[in-house]
Write a protein that binds this DNA or RNA. Sequence first.
DNA 1: CTCGATAGTTCATACCAGATACAAAGTAGG
DNA 2: CCTACTTTGTATCTGGTATGAACTATCGAG
Lengths: 398, 398
Amino acid sequence: MAHAPQRFNFTRHQSASNRTPRQINRNLVFNLIRIHQLVSRADIARISGLQRSTVSLIVEDLIKENWIMEGATGRLPRGRRPTFLQLNNQRAVIAVDVHPLRTTVAVADLGGRIIAQNLVPLPDDSAKAIQAITSAVKKLMAANSDKSFDGIGISLPGRTDLGLQKLIFAPNLNWPVLSLKSRMQRATGLRVEMDNVANACALSEVWFGESDGTHDLVVVNVSEGIGTGIFANGHLLRGEDGMAGEFGHVQVEPNGLMCGCGSRGCWETTASNRAGLRYFQEISKSESPKTFDVLIKMAQDGDVSALAAIEKMSHALGRGLRMIASALAPSEIVVVGEVTTAWYLFSPSVQAEMQQNSLARSPKVRPALEGNTARLRSAVALVMNEGPVESCPSRPKL
Amino acid sequence: MAHAPQRFNFTRHQSASNRTPRQINRNLVFNLIRIHQLVSRADIARISGLQRSTVSLIVEDLIKENWIMEGATGRLPRGRRPTFLQLNNQRAVIAVDVHPLRTTVAVADLGGRIIAQNLVPLPDDSAKAIQAITSAVKKLMAANSDKSFDGIGISLPGRTDLGLQKLIFAPNLNWPVLSLKSRMQRATGLRVEMDNVANACALSEVWFGESDGTHDLVVVNVSEGIGTGIFANGHLLRGEDGMAGEFGHVQVEPNGLMCGCGSRGCWETTASNRAGLRYFQEISKSESPKTFDVLIKMAQDGDVSALAAIEKMSHALGRGLRMIASALAPSEIVVVGEVTTAWYLFSPSVQAEMQQNSLARSPKVRPALEGNTARLRSAVALVMNEGPVESCPSRPKL
DNA sequence: CTCGATAGTTCATACCAGATACAAAGTAGG
DNA sequence: CCTACTTTGTATCTGGTATGAACTATCGAG
């Protein structure tokens, strides 16, 4: 996003101390190591503008605190060989992708690479479901006891309350409001970060994606409903009570269908997976498949009704994305969900609809990683987002 | 905005030096003086958490650089009397409110108080219009030669390009793209900041409003068209090419009227002043008044058709505000424009429409200051937004 | 007038990044 | 092998900055 450099931030109640520059530069150095996986101290100095001596001191600290480690030695045409730095591969994060049909727990390194993952069959009862997830996490931790775990990230198909993220409301799971976070924390002793999928994926794109973090992007999670996560000005946009990003519940058809939210004709009633299945039913005059994956499969196999349903859904999707483009002018819109397994079916109609936006340049619309990878990574991002703070909870400060 | 405290910012390419804390704390101290108009060094220390000694040093700097000055002496039940600090009342800012019908130039102090203002009749020809504004500014500066001017803020009823703000596109003024900023700069020698009204008003609300700057807010400028300014996470949200906030051009009626942007049924075709006049014409079957002000006057005088037109417009307005509430969940929506001169006519229907948003808590919707005050202040905010930077362009560094 | 309280200043200290010199470790060429 | 050169990484000194304690200034109450 090309916004004007703002020399003045509205940091009205946050004073800076002598250690502030160190904190800022620590984050900077750590990030550079995380992004450029093979990078020397000298490289960091060049990229960051810091002095080599300063970088050395900070790197020394980060190594002492086990955030990073020295790796291979490089080779240059002339001069002393650089020592590459890398994230400490002994540290790991637990990622939990809570999904109505395919809940997964995984172990990932600090770079977001999935090391191991397990599917967790979810009982209907919410208390048992939480127990199942917790025991799956414990099993996974035991199986990877050589790692030191920094925390647990949970991507939820629902909304968390406030910033404290104590409770969730997940209508598609039929879970009542409950305190998943604190239960998990008690069970494992680890820090637990949780947020809805769209927010988490937005963070994930910035942490692990190609974009360099200076751009605004919106993540649209198309599932049973539609949720959006907005990343702008270097932060997630959460809004009052954490309710920002409910583009899915903007009314696009004043006389449309009733939505679960109590309103009528919300965007998600026209463009979610459910809408796609409904379109199929209307078009084919026959019963729709049970899951959206099947509808996609049918379309891939050339079923005319399925293709027509997907086209109708794509147009509705595109119309909503156009709304987002007008409203926020992000540099990118990333789509998450089952649609990404066959994005080529959706893309043409979505693009056609987007083109009608004559005012602003249309943002790139691209699918996220396929399968559960995007969601698992997003859970990792939730933990990573807390960064290499000076006081590291899971190991003593050196 | 209740977002989680983010210990880690994506400051990837910005390193901190040992002067960084001073810059941060200067801003903090300056802001506290600006907000609490009567405040002592000791007060600032208590509020900010800085040491009294640190505050004293910073205050000394700010006084030397003529940003602030010592003022009256306070009185306490016990102990030494505090010396109140205040903004330097010798410093001032030129505010320009470019408006198709009532362009105004003004002098304001650093606290946003308007000291003097003049109406500028605008010739149709754009070159002459710019000349008229420039000479009005010069006249105003001459009449207030006891002040030291920090810069010129220009609020525009159009969109500026990028962050550099070199050009404007103001369709409602029939001005071609041109370089108003650099002309103004050459003519006066002052720093010129310019932005569209909605963005400027959003800054203004944060700088001079009651909100404490930690909240998200959206400013909706209802005029010939509709523009919105989004303030989130401590920054204006500008988006790619500075095109964020075009909620006015979100399609709300797929088969609606053609809009100037080339699309159909944009929100601004249903809820702008123009729409109001059109509704009057449709309802009364007679010619509409020439300006929206007259329509408001008629409604205030009890004209049934005018009241009906305003109600229809209010519903459309409310529907769009509901969209904004769903999308961004701001803590406040501030309305700017002619509608604020008789907001009580619009408020009931707007509120009724907003109530239909059952998902999130509805944000407060309130009108900005009446008349041109909001727009003039917003122009001041544009200059103020650059803050008490260390190198002050308009006077030597001491 | 003295005591206690509050505002504001002075000064020694510690932290930090920058700058410079230097040590380490390689290549190229004679 | 030796020298010149290049690049990485470290050591050390310097200057900017906030901190915290001690100090001065100023006021009201008894």
